[in-house]
């Protein structure tokens, strides 16, 4: 197991493997997304209270889930990078940040577009919305810290530490709807009893969620390939890789 992990974490091996895997994941992601969109926009019936407006759920909820999932991956990878000094883990942490920030932004914007017709306002300082906004700033903090420090190793460590400290916000976001009964509704799908959503809506929602997850992995692999290339600019494997493909 360790030998395999070490081999996978070696930059040239990762660069090759990631390049081979990413297109497959990308196509599967696209297929699931098409199925999820069809199920969500065409097949699923309108909601009995919210009418057609609820269809925002199929992009809003997966974005929100991903905004937290990516943060946990980022913090976990940062911890691995700090403890075991695995360079690839740092690349994964740093390259996750913009993708996570994108999902957070999407969760906020789609939520806002859903809030206007249902709550009558685009924004309210509700516990869930505020903690999600803080999540966006945490992502910006990680990206800014990494960009602001000249020395790459110090930058990686500082951004990693920042990411780990910020993970405290994740349970706050998750439980915000239970701890403070403000405007945002409670969980529908991720509660212990059966989900209170009809299966014709649940299936496209889960399809979208899985496809968003695959989207993240695909984009992360692409980004991490760039990252290992940039960091390994003087390494032998990068030289031989470029020498082989020079005439293009």
């Amino acid at each position: 197991m360790w030998a395999f992990l070490h081999r996978f974490a070696s930059p040239p091996h990762f660069y090759r493997r990631a390049g081979a895997i990413a297109p497959w994941l990308g196509w599967i992601c696209l297929g699931l997304m098409a199925a999820g969109l069809y199920g969500g926009l065409v097949v699923a019936p309108p909601d009995y209270q919210q009418g057609e407006s609820y269809r925002i759920i199929f992009v809003h909820v997966p974005s929100a889930w991903m905004s937290m999932f990516v943060y946990v991956v980022m913090a976990g990878a940062s911890a691995i990078a700090l403890i075991w000094r695995i360079k690839l883990a740092e690349v994964i942490a740093i390259e996750s940040a913009p993708v996570g920030a994108s999902f957070t932004f999407l969760a906020l914007v789609t939520g806002s577009l859903w809030g206007k017709p249902m709550w009558g306002t685009y924004w309210v300082w509700d516990a869930r919305l505020t903690s999600e906004l803080i999540l966006l700033f945490l992502y910006f903090g990680v990206m800014g810290l990494y960009a602001a420090i000249e020395d790459r190793r110090t930058a990686g460590r500082a951004a990693g530490l920042f990411a780990i400290v910020g993970v405290v916000n994740i349970p706050i976001i998750h439980y915000s709807v239970e701890w403070w009964h403000t405007l945002h509704q409670g969980p529908t799908v991720t509660k212990l009893s059966a989900p209170s959503i009809h299966v014709s809506m649940l299936v496209p929602l889960l399809l979208m969620a899985v496809s968003f997850k695959l989207f993240y992995v695909t984009v992360l692999l692409h980004r991490a390939r760039c990252g290992v290339l940039e960091r390994g600019r003087n390494a032998g494997w990068v030289r031989s890789l470029l020498a082989r493909t020079e005439p293009e």
Binding site: P46, G51, E52, S53, R55, V59, L113, W114, P117
Partner: peptide, 12 residues
């Protein structure tokens, strides 16, 4: 979209 076209389509 049952009158919610603006919100639904802009989200997408």
């Amino acid at each position: 979209m049952g009158g919610y076209a603006f919100y639904v389509w802009w989200s997408y």
